[in-house]
């Protein structure tokens, strides 16, 4: 009976007794979810355009962040370093299209996946060669991003603390999602991109330049990676360990669907908030540390009932 109480009643009693703390947990989960969603967005962009699961998205986050901080360390003013980092991601996109994607057109998806794994290790090596292996502090204040926090005192005497950088992350993520939605649905390039995603050959036959579209979409994924690198770097540091955190986007993608931008956001929020609530209120029952696998469990259960994800396209292939 005690076991049932501990699992099914006690966590909710804790939530009711300390609503300020519950609010804080939900907020932290929301911020983590936004960051997961940003990483997942990068995956979705590439997958939509080329059907490739871009294993290199995590290292692109690190590489973009390191470029920004590394350039600033070399004496480049922060805003100019930001523009130059965007330039670095543009060059990277062009190189990926020219030297990786173009030679592999028409190859099976697994070959393209392997190519992105190869790119991951190449970018790790290149990043360490250029910027060194030390973690670097994000230039948050220099970029004009807010620092510090605001604490709200609740009726029960508890505190809810909101970090200004987390609020900025949420706002920037929403702007990026909105911008990308407009880009995909309202612009000529966006429509061309969707055509390429549907059928490469058909898109080519109506005069859409596959090469140009791929370069653009990898560049867009690079911009998303830079935004993620800045936001996550401000919360901890820009280090190669971030590359592993980026794999948290996997359950988000399973949940939200590999082709849906709103799906990435909703999936990110479900995973972010779900894992925080799970860890805080139920993690102690099994010694803690459940966060690292809980997200995958949520995604796996979801997969059993809706394999295409919340907003993914259900594809039926005729045999």
């Amino acid at each position: 009976m005690d076991v049932l109480y501990t699992i099914f009643i006690d966590p909710f009693v804790q939530m009711a007794e300390a609503p300020d703390f519950l609010l804080q947990v939900v907020w932290e989960g929301f911020v983590a979810g936004i960051l997961y969603a940003l990483i997942a967005l990068g995956f979705v962009l590439i997958y939509k355009a080329s059907g490739v699961f871009n294993f290199a998205q995590g290292i692109m986050v690190v590489f973009a962040g390191l470029s920004l901080v590394g350039l600033h360390e070399m004496g480049v003013p922060a805003l100019l370093a930001l523009i130059m980092a965007i330039g670095v991601m543009a060059i990277l996109a062009i190189c990926i299209e020219k030297f990786v994607m173009r030679p592999l057109v028409g190859q099976p998806d697994i070959i393209l996946l392997m190519a992105t794994i190869g790119m991951t290790y190449f970018l790790i090596g290149l990043g360490e060669f250029i910027f060194g292996g030390e973690p670097k502090q994000m230039i948050t204040e220099e970029l004009g991003l807010p620092t510090g926090s605001t604490a709200f005192e609740m009726d029960n005497g508890g505190l809810v603390i909101l970090q200004h950088i987390d609020i900025a992350a949420a706002v920037i993520a929403l702007i990026m999602v909105g911008g990308l939605a407009v880009f995909f649905n309202r612009t000529r390039i966006g429509r061309a991109l969707r055509a390429v995603a549907d059928d490469h050959t058909a898109a080519l036959s109506v005069g859409i330049s596959l090469n140009q579209i791929w370069a653009i979409v990898w560049f867009a994924a690079g911009i998303v990676a830079l935004a993620t690198g800045i936001m996550w770097g401000a919360r901890s540091d820009v280090s190669f360990a971030l590359e592993i955190v980026a794999l948290k986007a996997l359950p988000v993608l399973i949940l939200g669907g590999f082709t849906s931008i709103p799906g990435a956001v909703i999936g990110g929020l479900i995973i972010g908030i779900g894992e925080k609530i799970g860890e805080i209120y139920w993690g102690g029952l099994v010694g803690g540390g459940i966060e690292s696998w809980l997200a995958y469990m949520i995604a796996l259960i979801f997969l059993l009932f809706r394999p295409q994800g919340l907003f993914g396209e259900k594809i039926i292939e005729r045999i």
Binding site: V31, A241, V245, G284, G288
Partner: peptide, 22 residues
Amino acid sequence: KQYPVAGKEMQNQSSQWLSVRR
């Protein structure tokens, strides 16, 4: 009170520190 941090979650410790706060 133990707060384990998995190697791949080193830069994602908000849960552990929320638990500390509680």
